[in-house]
Computed example of a mutant assay.
Amino acid sequence: MSPSPARTSPRSRWLKLAWMVPAALLILAGVVLAARWLRDTPALQDFLSRYPGFSELPDGAPVGIPAWVGWQHFLNSLLILLIIRSGWLIRTRQRPIGSWTRNNKGLIRTRNQPKKISLDLWFHLSLDVLWVLNGLIFYVLIFATGHWMRLVPTSWDVFPNAASTALQYASLEWPLENGWVNYNSLQLLSYFAVVFIAAPLAIISGLRMSPSWPAKARINRFLRIETARAVHFPVMAFFVLFIIVHVTLVLTTGALRNLNHMYAATDGTGWTGFWFFAASLVVMVVAWVAARPVFLRPVAGLMGKVGR
């Protein structure tokens, strides 16, 4: 009998990736040194003077961040955190923690037998519904109040200004921040990409991956499920990267003022926004802990049949 192959422990697998930490630090140091050198050249000095990092807003653009944006931001943060968690578990969990089958009665009835899905997928889809509803409310509010002008580029100079902002960030000499009045161009492009590109792509690809589609659905002619899967995961990776960079910059470019903008709807340096932010973190931790089978099963049982 041939010897069984040795199993690689989780610790040894992580040790094999340990080289990535010093490699990332070396790359980061190289980027900073290169950016600082470039900033001292006459050509880049002239470029930074011409494009300081901001594009002018259209006439009539609102000033300040209203309270509803803060509530939308909190709900979106909470939901996207749980959506990413549940999506990752769907992708990596080898043994489902349970199954869920929709009740074929009430307002929604079908001729075919409802499909059985994993409890993880049920939780993911339920969160998706709430996230989409929150997003639809956000779309209505930004266009009804004119807040869209703070999120949509309206001038081509946004691109050189974004490059200028990226260079300033990379050189560790932060650009002047005044998000209460106007986001810098790199923020503007990032927020536009999240709201108007990544979010719709996540919704469209997620809908296509739903198990409710018949095997021979006509949608296969326009969007195959393989294509949807190829889009959905990179979009999730984009959201993860955006969140990491976004939170890092919020905390390193004037944390108290930034937190007041998003959580207290004020432009100041007091501690009100920080405490609201701390409370939101507590809610996220509680929700993360509660997203377990012992809590999910009773809730899922209200909407269908839960099995093993």
Rank of each mutant, 00 (worst) to 15 (best):
A6F: 02
G30E: 02
N134T: 02
H124M: 02
M284K: 03
R39T: 14
L188E: 00
G53H: 01
P42F: 02
L151I: 03
F159E: 06
I80N: 04
A215N: 09
S126T: 14
K305S: 15
I244H: 07
H261V: 11
L48D: 11
P293F: 09
Y191W: 08
P96F: 01
L133D: 01
M303F: 15
R11T: 15
R229F: 05
H73K: 03
P175Y: 08
L26V: 15
N104A: 11
L38A: 14
F222S: 04
D46M: 06
R292S: 14
R50L: 13
M20S: 12
L188F: 08
S12L: 12
S171A: 15
W14A: 02
S86Q: 04
P214N: 00
R102D: 00
R93V: 05
A287H: 03
I80P: 00
A265E: 01
N260M: 05
R39A: 10
G307W: 01
G206K: 04
S99W: 11
L28R: 12
L207N: 10
V158K: 05
A215K: 14
R102S: 02
A23K: 09
A166K: 07
S205N: 12
A255D: 12
R218Q: 12
G64F: 12
Q45N: 15
A255R: 11
V194N: 07
M262T: 01
G301W: 07
Y51E: 13
I90T: 02
L259Q: 02
F123H: 08
W19Q: 08
H232W: 05
L249K: 05
T154G: 03
V289E: 10
E177L: 04
I117H: 10
S155D: 15
V152W: 05
T41W: 05
R224F: 07
H232F: 06
L81F: 11
F239V: 09
R221T: 11
L241Y: 07
R297W: 04
K105M: 09
V69I: 13
V286H: 01
G146Q: 07
R109H: 04
M236N: 02
P52R: 08
P153F: 06
L89A: 03
A237I: 12
V21N: 13
N112T: 14
I137G: 13
T272S: 10
E56N: 11
F74I: 15
G87K: 01
A24E: 07
G270C: 07
K16T: 04
A215T: 05
I203S: 05
R102K: 08
L281Q: 14
W180C: 12
Q168R: 13
L186Q: 13
L249A: 09
L207W: 13
L167P: 01
G304S: 10
M149R: 10
V299Y: 00
V132C: 05
M20W: 12
S2V: 12
I219K: 04
H261M: 14
G301P: 03
